[in-house]
Design a binder for these strands. Sequence first.
DNA 1: GCCGTTTTCGGCCCGACTGTTTTCAGTCG
Length: 571
Amino acid sequence: MSNVAIALILREIADLLEIKGDNPFKIRAYRNAADIVGNHPHALAVLDAAQLREIPGIGKDLAVRIRDIATTGDTAVHRELIAEFPARILDLLGLQGVGPKTVAVFYRDLGVRSLADLERAAADGRIRALKGMGAKKEALILKALEERRRRTGRLLLSDADAIATSLIAYLQDAVPGAGLTPVGSLRRGRDTCGDLDLLATDGDASLMDAFVRAPRVERVLARGETKSSVLFDRAFQADLRLVPAESRGAALQYFTGSKAHNIALRDRAVGFDCKLNEYGLFRLSDEARLAGESEEAVYRSLGLDWIAPELREGRGEIEAAATGRLPRLIQRSDLKGDLHMHTSETDGSDDIRAMATAARESGLDYIAITDHSQALAMANGLNEERALAHASRIRAVDRDGGIRVLAGIECDIKPDGTLDLADDCLAALDYVVASVHSAFNQDQRQMTDRLVRAIACPYVDVIGHPTGRLLLRRDPYPVDMEALVDAAVKHGVALEINAQPHRLDLNDAHAILARERGASLVISSDAHSRTGLAALRWGVAVARRAWLEPAHVLNSRPFEDFKAALRRNRQ
DNA sequence: GCCGTTTTCGGCCCGACTGTTTTCAGTCG
């Protein structure tokens, strides 16, 4: 049972307990545990109760429940709650403006058991008759139901970034002098964003006016002096907060999150006899403001080094910051090479020289051209003959314009784990990234064996996009990541962090596992055109979330060092 | 349900906005 599946059940328990009106702190404990489990880099299903208890936030009871879920697929508390409430009742919580208390009232007073029931109740005017509700609330419910049908869900990190950039440009145009910064999950570099959070530090009410009138705003959820929320078309939400300049740092900290990080930080503030909110760090005894103008000062006043946003996920960053053990995170400028890209020889749109020139202009010292192999016929993949001819054309470009260009290939891993091109062909190339592009429906055992067999092939240097996921479109294929990482370490094969915004594969949790086990990593763009090279920044975001330093990433090394570190060139 | 430099009991992060309210509960982040 995967961590994500366990987390799902823990979260359902929390939601149902909340509808039931149970102890809020107990609910928080379940929700907190769901976050911990869901984000944990190791498979928790294999741990026993004692090992689970060592994880902060997991105590005696939760350890037992997690064991239950891991071994039987469920736990008694959950089964009892499911029996107590209708199966579809949790759908109601997904509606804007509907929380657990409201769900409880709908269920108790109106017998609402599903979204369809709620829609009928609202249409019949039965909502307005409830205590504490009126015609306005009823209309909001109908609106929320309508929006839910059109909702597209989360946004890719790159899309969220693009929307934030244009929204900020619009606001700065409307209110010159306004200082605006993206915060929330976008600033933390999460692979997808559920909404968009913006922080403004200079500006007045006119900024809020401009915000709620931004292009494509469909509905204003809230409009205040310091806080507004809107829904864009396709029901994508954005929030804007305005704070005074002296609170900029505290607000940046607060609105960047994550929730788990903030709770831990505030808990720490309490230990310092202080209170931390979005306006500053205040001493409880006399309300004196100890920090607030800069994020650095907020952290410093709590005895912590400044923590990069990508680390703020409650993965031990506060302990590391307290003891001076934060990593020197990798940056885009640390990357000297890009090791996965396609040309017009297969499914790319630019030729070798165009890719090399663009890479040089983006500051890289070396690249590998890695077109597809023959199994990917759809992409006009290369057979041995074409691959070798392509390689000689690539080598003809090597060193031109001051950039080294390796003749590589992205070789398909066939369903049985053998490679798509003959060994002598692979041996004649400079670099091989091996990837799965077919037979995604294999079970975990087959897929793991398949990848481990590919890793054992002596001509494979890197495993490309190791889980095959396409964000918001296709789940990862099942693979035992620990076995994969261990095999990679054993054979000196590197694992790719594919920087395509819809892949970001490995993800952050897998990259943490790889780092902890001592695997080498590469960050590659998988560009299919010159402009695609810019995707490296998204891969760097994943790497930073995984606490990676330059030393963990092969393509942060100078060319000769990098080349010597490749599996094929060792010993 | 978790946790412990004051604690094995009694705490547990903090504030803005809305709707239906005569002083606040619920939702959200």
